[in-house]
Amino acid sequence: MAEATGRQDGLLPLVIVGGFLGAGKSTWLRHQLFTRRFGRVHVLVNEAAEMPVDDLLLGRAERLDVLAGGCACCSGRADLLAALRRICDAGAVALDTIVLETSGIADPAAIARAIMEDPVLVRRIVLTRTIVLVDALEGPGQLATEHLARAQAEAADEIVVTKAAEAPAPNRSRLAATLRGLAPDARLGWADFGVETKVETDPDALPFDLGPVAEDSGPIQAHRLDAGSAGGWWALSAWLSALLFARGDSIVRVKGAVRSPAGRLLLQSVRRHVQPPEILPEREQPQEGEGDFIVLIGRGIDPVRLQASWDRFVLGHEGRAEGIARDDP
């Protein structure tokens, strides 16, 4: 199941592997290196505490660096950026992917932002995937009590629940429902000792009650907005940049595909930070009838109001939006 593919734009793909302390990141990554899921990789391991590096891990990665000078999303950020620059400078001819295993206390979104804001790395590296591991046993408790554990899950493109066999079936179903609530668009998988396993979950299971998050409230919801053939990139980019500035705290992610004169653009953001839009290759151009769209994932966003704003500013519909009360805060 190699995911590594040669890129036309010459950028080096980066995969971030995150997850709370003890979620099983190293164990999972060791097995992925064994199966060569990421092709030829350079592994960066960021440990909050220094740990002995496994021989097998070393053997299967083309190169491996350990960043032990602090967590890469805060105090160790300069070390991470320097290490990524070194990899780029070394010439990445025989490399398919850089895999960054974050420390258990790192927010993947903060790392993604640091890389995007670096003027050199933004031209050399593209973040292709954020994989977050969640412990089947400890996960519910961590999600309930640790804001960081929730932030990690929300930032994920793919969530892997580890130690799947150890949790009782009803808890697995509830954990799956909880994670779907936090990251509605993320792929959810299960693993034991890094090996993907098939787990049947009850789709009607209730999520765990996580309690209120300190500064936010309300569940995370995904909203799809379609533009068909109207609108276009300029309207959408102007509208979305204003919306992210005004309401970036409640918008967790934006994904979408939008036509522009340069080609169809892939749009992705984490919190307020929008990645440089990529031009989708021809073979991924839309089929007939498939128009522009974005999926906006956020907390406490009124769908009626969002659609009204989209209709008015992106689609250019005139007139007052119906059903909008003037006394709304």
């Binding site: 509208w239 500035f245 005004a246 966003i301 704003s309 500013f313």
Partner: peptide, 23 residues
């Protein structure tokens, strides 16, 4: 948008009542 929020003493919010009921 940053300068506009300074001039308007609050963010220019496309989902606000002001934006949705103007005109």
């Amino acid at each position: 948008w940053r300068e506009a929020s300074r001039m308007a003493r609050g963010p220019v919010d496309p989902m606000s009542d002001r934006a949705l009921t103007h005109g």
